[in-house]
Design a protein around this nucleic acid. Structure first.
Length: 196
DNA sequence: CGGGTTTGACCCGCGC
DNA sequence: GCGCGGGTCAAACCCG
């Protein structure tokens, strides 16, 4: 357990990004960040140019996704790195004398009426919280798969309620629930596939 | 009845 | 030490 915690901590950077999410975070030829509407599965992809100014002159090859997410968090949400350490109070109680476990994380911004994006995984809501200085509550979701500790947070941007901020934390140890039947057999392969 | 959501309580870290 | 804020728990509730 202790080893696992340290391993996870060290794995934070460089930040791996699931291929099914790369489509939501393309870096174009101008090396600026864009985000895609999650509804792009059904309709023509809708580029959000509004985020471009947040990451001027971003070089894709020189940035890890964790750093990108951190920049987004800082710029959009006004948070510092330590502000969103994903360690619950309960975990802290268990591992009081140990280093904090930092799960891999990334976030992205989308313009959508829908709060919960359909990313192929099944999520169960486990909490909702009104964040200070925002009129919109933040929702907390956990992956419904047993033994999968991936979490995500969903909130709306205070300055622009049309924008949804989704923050993923951790790695899925299975494939999306779309192919639930064979997810067991392929779990390890697909895990690598989605996070490389 | 099983699985998901809601919501108030609780815990912990942090700043003062 | 105390209060605040964020994150989580878990009982109650809802729904198919």
């Amino acid at each position: 357990m202790l080893n696992q915690a340290f391993l996870e901590d060290q794995e934070f950077l460089p930040f791996p990004t699931p291929t099914n999410m790369i489509s939501h975070l393309p870096l174009d030829s101008n090396q600026t960040l864009k985000t895609l509407s999650p509804l792009s599965h059904h309709s023509k992809p809708q580029l959000d140019l509004g985020a471009s100014h947040l990451l001027p002159n971003l070089q894709t090859s020189n940035w890890a996704w964790g750093e990108v997410s951190e920049i987004i968090s800082n710029k959009i949400l006004g948070r510092s790195r330590d502000d969103h350490l994903g360690v619950s109070g309960m975990k802290m109680k268990k591992f009081k004398s140990r280093r904090k476990v930092r799960e891999p994380r990334f976030c992205f911004k989308t313009m959508s009426d829908i709060d919960v994006l359909d990313d192929g995984y099944k999520w169960r809501k486990y909490g909702q919280k009104v964040v200070k200085n925002t009129q919109h509550p933040r929702s907390y979701y956990r992956c419904t798969q047993d033994s999968c500790r991936v979490k995500k947070r969903v909130e709306r941007l205070a300055e622009d309620p049309r924008m949804v901020i989704t923050t993923y934390e951790g790695r899925h140890a299975h494939s999306p629930s779309l192919n639930e039947e064979d997810s067991e057999a392929n779990s390890s392969k697909l895990c690598n596939f989605f996070w490389l």
